[in-house]
Amino acid sequence: MMSGFETIVMYLGMSLLVVLAMLGASALLGPFRPRPQKATTFECGVPLLEPGHKRYSVRYYLVAVLFLVFDLETVLLYPLAVKYKALAQLGWGVFFEVFIFVFVLLVGLVYAIKKGAIDWR
């Protein structure tokens, strides 16, 4: 039996081909008449007052750090979840493993919320 990944590769190849074809066709079909005004940054026809890259809120980083922790948690639990039914037949051990693992993270989430890590004021 085939694992099926060669078909996935075919599918990805098809996507790549069509995306490149679409961009190529657009470049060929579209006109090319550059003007300096066309290449300006979008801003209602007035000159830009400040550069686009400014400093922005640190909360975006906090959210990213929290995301790393919780997404890794789900990733680590996936293999356990697949085998959960088989392991559950052996007793309550696996349930308590899941319980402790998630409980620790739940405490972390409550701490982060109490500290105001995701309050956007």
Binding site: T41, F42, E43, E50, P51, G52, H53, K54, Y56, R59, Y60, V63, A64, F67, F70, D71, T74, V75
Partner: peptide, 27 residues
């Protein structure tokens, strides 16, 4: 890469939103 304030704000919001909602979806 667009280097326009609207694009950058949109990109930042998109990132924070998508990664935040990936967690409940995964759960």
């Amino acid at each position: 890469a667009s280097n326009s304030k609207y694009s950058i704000l949109g990109g930042l919001r998109a990132t924070a939103q998508l990664i935040s909602y990936e967690v409940p979806m995964g759960l």
